[in-house]
């Protein structure tokens, strides 16, 4: 396209502006003239590019129209599916209706449940520790009561020795180790009572219940008070609130009981697990 005359002719030929004679003359020249052939080839390449460009723009516009239509249809479908359908006539309003988002309700409920789980998890070991402290604080009262029941002068006989050993082991916190010693003494209410006490402070406190339970009705305040206190602790640990309360009432009936303070604290602990 170095020759502007060639370009004019090529363009007139291409756009169909030539008459028949002119067209034939041009074609004849095109067959012979190398420069015209080169210009014509260059023009055709550019024309091809411009056609492609134009077609491409048109294609893109059509594509974008189609995609916009697809998006519109999808949005309309979505809006239709989310629109509530009037299945029945609206019910008469019963006062102010508060719109609450269901998701929020679920979130609050889940948080609350999590909080409860956390409290339960935290409260277990905490409660056990509190009960252990309470039991340890009142154990001297029990050992003092037992000591008063031992034969006067701490006899030198085998049975007296055995009782003393039991008492020492309870005081030292080795109640389970006292149980074999109790096997050596003659059976009787006192031996049974001591066995019940040892079991109540051992790792198997539930075994103490059938042994100590009869002593809670005993006319002897010593038996009644100590058995009630140790059973109250056993029931509190087992989570049996009613039976623990019953034992505490037995203790509170006697204003001289050495377990009064402990019983009151235990009662508060049972009624409010986070107090004490």
């Amino acid at each position: 396209m170095n020759n502007s005359e060639n370009t004019d002719q090529i363009m007139r030929y291409d756009t169909g502006e030539m008459d028949e004679a002119e067209r034939l003359a041009f074609e004849a020249r095109l067959a012979k003239d190398a420069e015209l052939q080169a210009d014509y080839a260059a023009y055709q390449a550019l024309a091809g590019f411009l056609h492609q460009l134009s077609e491409g723009r048109m294609l893109r516009a059509q594509w974008e129209d189609m995609r916009a239509h697809v998006h519109e249809e999808a949005s309309a479908e979505k809006a239709k599916s989310t629109q509530p359908r009037p299945l029945s006539p609206p019910k008469p309003s019963r006062g102010r209706v508060v719109a609450v988002n269901f998701r929020w309700i679920m979130a609050v409920a889940a948080s609350f449940a999590l909080l409860l789980c956390a409290l339960w998890w935290w409260q277990g070991p905490y409660a056990d520790r509190q009960l252990n402290e309470l039991a340890a604080a009142n154990l001297p009262a029990t050992t003092a009561l037992i000591r008063r029941q031992l034969p006067a002068g701490y006899g030198a006989d085998a049975e007296s020795k055995a009782y003393r050993t039991v008492l020492e082991r309870i005081e030292q916190g080795h109640a389970a180790a006292a149980l074999p010693v109790l096997d050596q003494v003659a059976p009787g209410p006192f031996a049974d009572f001591l066995r019940g006490i040892c079991l109540s402070v051992s790792e198997t406190p539930a075994q103490a219940i059938p042994i100590l339970e009869p002593f809670t009705d005993d006319p002897e305040p010593f038996y009644r008070q100590a058995a009630a206190w140790h059973l109250a602790l056993v029931y509190a640990r087992a989570g049996d609130r009613n039976k623990a309360e019953k034992m505490i009432r037995i203790i509170l009936e006697d204003p001289t009981s050495p377990y009064l303070d402990g019983a009151k604290k235990l009662q508060t602990r049972i009624n409010n697990p986070f107090a004490l």
């Binding site: 024309a47 590019f49 411009l50 134009s54």
Partner: peptide, 29 residues
């Protein structure tokens, strides 16, 4: 080739681009 042609085409002014498209593609007089 198309990318090179497009780069060259983009160097033209808007009026020159329209001129080419109207004359060569639309074959306007």
């Amino acid at each position: 080739l198309f990318a090179a042609q497009q780069e060259c085409f983009n160097q033209l002014t808007k009026q020159q681009q329209d001129l080419m498209l109207l004359r060569i593609v639309e074959k306007r007089s």
